[in-house]
Write a protein that binds this DNA or RNA. Structure first.
Length: 422
DNA sequence: TCTGGGGTCCTAGGACCC
DNA sequence: TCTGGGGTCCTAGGACCC
């Protein structure tokens, strides 16, 4: 059996841990630039707010009902996620982190000694006690069914946070009641196709013959069908190395100045290089893209991107930044108000398989690698960006994202740690 | 005034080979 | 008048996820 542990409105729950007065109140966490709602509590949902809503369009609701807003604070959420995962890992022999707020737990063998539902309720309680994060759990033979279970567990109090779908009767009942569009793997397009084919519930889909499914859908649809019928076939095992690494941001203000654009691209390139070294990889393809604000119909629209192939795979911030800036120079067009830039590293390989190149122009690679290691160590110890390339510019530039409502880095910065008055 | 970021997998079709 | 068959590899774009 597989359990899916899902943190309830995770980003909001983390903020509530450090602002306990917000319990039972409508809370929203916003995307970068305080643009859209990315997480919200049931209380906020009840006011008609939805994930993805641009917050400036909902100002009236926010003001009238006193909805508490937070800017996104990924460092804090990542630190909290780690704590939750540590507890989950210690509870079962094998687990997989699926996303920042979800983990799959493999329960094989535990059923000999425990009632699985009771056991997982114990885990839920432990997570709540140690981290104050509420979680919902679904247990089933497949991941897709476990996810459905976790949604029921979240929705109905009677489950006490854990819903197990472990027999045919429960499976059919769950599939008949569940919303087709909420099934893992069924997105907008597949939903439209299923509806067109006359299918309204997950049960109707699951009850179709395999040959029918194979003739109308390709591999992903077929897999979902099997999972709904209790045949496990989706592999979510974690990859050691990402195949692409991307850092991109929308700006707080429109940018026309080339130096500012250059500073943004250099910062994103440095961030990518840092992530790259973090997973012990090298890249040999650096892509840069720029775009104007697609919502501003009154301004000239422009977006472009280009890739530079490097002669040698590298993880050197200086080399990657140079490549990125040379691409920017080519795709930059004067007279455009830019809203967003980004850097993508591709063609990623393992750092241990380094190939020598006869025509390599960088002669001191080992020393340069050592330099990067030292910079990473210093930045780790004294704070992000303590040492950076001059071209990245200084803190708080015009292009930086807005984050008006960011809470403190309570778990990672001594200067921002909470003080409690007793 | 204000509209997110970072990924994966799959497939069709093009380019190329003998 | 008639113009093959069978592969592989790569890539862009679509669909989906959180």
């Amino acid at each position: 059996m597989i359990a899916l542990v899902d943190c309830n409105s995770f980003f909001c729950s983390v903020e509530k841990v450090f602002h306990p007065g917000l319990n039972g109140k409508p809370v929203c966490v916003l995307s970068c630039n305080d643009g859209c709602i990315v997480a919200l509590t049931p209380e906020a949902k009840a006011l008609g707010l939805r994930r993805g809503d641009p917050i400036f369009k909902k100002k009236d609701i926010v003001q009238h009902y006193g909805v508490k807003l937070f800017s996104t604070n990924m460092y804090l959420y990542a630190a909290m996620s780690k704590r939750v995962n540590n507890i989950l890992r210690s509870a079962v022999p094998h687990s997989e982190v699926y996303s920042i707020d979800e983990s799959f737990l493999y329960l094989d063998g535990l059923e000999k000694y425990h009632d699985l539902e009771d056991y997982m309720r114990g885990v839920v309680e432990k997570v709540r006690l140690y981290t104050d994060i509420p979680v919902s759990v679904g247990i089933a033979h497949t991941k897709t069914l476990a996810k459905i279970g976790s949604k029921f567990a979240k929705q109905y109090k009677g489950y006490h946070s854990v819903c197990m779908i472990d027999n045919e009767e429960k499976r059919r009942k769950a599939l008949a009641l569940f919303d087709l569009s909420d099934v893992w793997g069924i997105g907008k397009q597949t939903l439209a196709k299923l509806n067109y084919l006359g299918i309204r519930t997950p049960l109707e889909f699951a009850d179709k013959k395999e040959s029918w499914v194979r003739s109308h859908f390709s591999k992903p649809g077929w897999q979902t069908w099997k999972e709904l019928n209790g045949i496990s076939c989706i592999d979510t095992s974690e990859v050691a190395q990402r195949q692409t690494i991307c850092t991109s941001r929308s700006f707080g203000n429109l940018v026309t100045d080339y130096d500012a654009l250059q500073a943004s691209v250099a910062s994103f390139a440095a961030s990518c290089a840092n992530k790259l070294r973090g997973q012990h990889s090298l890249t040999s393809a650096v892509t840069v893209f720029v775009s104007s604000n697609r919502f501003r119909e009154d301004l000239t629209q422009y977006s472009n991107g280009q890739t530079r192939i490097l002669p040698m795979p590298t993880s050197d911030t200086i080399e990657i930044t140079q490549a990125a800036l040379s691409v920017l120079k080519e795709i930059y067009r004067e007279g455009i108000s830019y809203k967003k830039t980004g850097v993508i590293l591709g063609d990623i390989t393992d750092a241990s398989y380094i190939q020598q190149n006869l025509f390599d122009e960088v002669k001191n690679r080992p020393e340069r690698m050592q330099l990067m290691k030292s910079i990473d160590a210093l930045n780790h110890r004294f704070g992000l960006r303590k040492i950076h390339l001059a071209v990245e510019g200084e803190e708080k530039q015009a292009w930086h994202a807005k984050s008006e409502f960011r809470s403190g880095n309570y778990l990672s910065d001594l200067k921002e740690i909470l003080t409690i008055q007793i």
